[in-house]
């Protein structure tokens, strides 16, 4: 594999890790009004992701930064084309991020309701729009030879785009519900586990429809039929999705959560493995498409960034896993009493 191809998959990996990590805290945010029946339960939900959400979100910053560094043309065209969608995501992440810090600072029901709503909307919008954006990339975006986008936000809200949005949203909801089952006990735990199991069949249906729809609206399967070995990826992803249900019914929540993470990573790779070497296909003319080769940085930059990524990504993962294990226990009532708790 050449450096561009390596970077292409490293780039997909960074986005996939972002979805697999921030995915569960976005999911919990979107579930807040439905699972948190009272202030204490809501606080448990906030605190179940309190120490982790910010670190998770840095994967987005890294994915953005690496897009800029390794594929500057992709960075320029992707984010200017998806201008409105991305801005909505960013505004959502802003009101969501401050909700954690602000909510507990004033003891008034109205104030808390305001930030509960911000967490909810701020989690729902990115979950859905990331799916919409990536499905549209799989399908092709109306860009011309200069990389200028010919469409609006509503162009992205086509049936396949909405299907992708629904898929991501459901993936994150299930991912979040399992995390909450891990981090809580009593009624809230039961409700979270039930929600994960209850949403799973819906997720399965949407995932199957997405796999089939991809056949008719995207060129994704061309790579798979050319290299049948690649079907293994789809197989692993589907097995991981089935594993989620299996481990949920075994009440083995950590394994269920890991299966769910693998499903999300597999779903992200599914499209890009099919698109390679295309990164941002043009629906106007295939010649206008951005590829790993025409959108990349110079060889020197790719080389330097590769060295840095090989060093830093494992280091970051190592200390992030340490922090996850530090906060693996259920959120206790005692902890909610601490001064620093959200």
């Amino acid at each position: 594999m050449d450096l561009q191809a390596i970077w292409y998959f490293l780039w997909v990996l960074l986005w996939a890790v972002y979805f697999a990590t921030d995915g569960f805290d976005l999911g919990i945010g979107a579930l807040l009004p439905f699972l948190g029946k009272n202030d204490e339960e809501k606080r448990i939900m906030f605190n179940s992701i309190g120490p982790l959400w910010d670190g998770n979100e840095v994967w987005l910053i890294t994915a953005g930064g690496v897009t800029f560094a390794a594929f500057p043309l992709m960075y320029a065209v992707m984010f200017s084309s998806l201008y409105s969608a991305l801005m909505l995501i960013l505004f959502a992440l802003i009101i969501r991020g401050v909700a954690f810090e602000f909510r507990g600072k004033i003891d008034s029901p109205g104030w808390k309701k305001l930030w509960d709503f911000c967490l909810f909307i701020g989690s729902l919008v990115p979950s859905f729009l990331f799916g919409v954006a990536f499905a549209n990339i799989f399908q092709g975006i109306p860009i011309d030879d200069k990389g200028v986008y010919h469409g609006t936000l509503f162009t992205l809200l086509n049936p396949y785009g909405i299907l992708g949005g629904a898929l991501f949203f459901l993936l994150f909801l299930v991912h979040g519900a399992i995390w909450l089952a891990i981090k809580s006990d009593g009624d809230l735990h039961d409700r979270a586990a039930r929600t994960a199991s209850g949403l799973w069949p819906v997720l399965l249906v949407v995932a199957v429809v997405f796999l089939i729809a991809s056949k008719f609206t995207t060129p994704i399967y061309d790579n798979y039929t050319a290299h049948p070995m690649l079907f293994l990826l789809i197989l692993i992803t589907v097995l991981a999705l089935l594993g989620v249900k299996l481990f949920l019914s075994l009440k083995n929540y950590w394994t269920a959560w890991l299966s769910s993470a693998v499903t999300i990573i597999g779903a992200t790779f599914f499209g890009f493995v099919g698109l390679f070497p295309n990164m941002f296909p043009s629906s106007l003319n295939p010649a206008f498409s951005l590829t790993a080769y025409n959108a990349s940085s110079s060889h020197l930059t790719l080389q330097i960034m590769f060295t840095l990524a090989v060093i830093f990504v494992p280091v970051v993962l190592a200390y992030q896993i340490w922090v996850y294990s530090l906060f693996r226990h259920k959120v206790s009532k005692e902890e909610l009493g601490y001064d620093e708790a959200y």
């Binding site: 670190g55 840095v58 910053i61 890294t62 930064g65 560094a69 390794a70 940085s297 840095l308 200390y319």
Partner: peptide, 20 residues
């Protein structure tokens, strides 16, 4: 772009994760 990526990978991660 590479300068922004180095910032995120090398430092912002450390700051955000450890602050938690």
């Amino acid at each position: 772009g590479s300068l922004l990526a180095i910032e995120a990978l090398g430092f912002f991660f450390l700051e955000s994760i450890l602050l938690g």
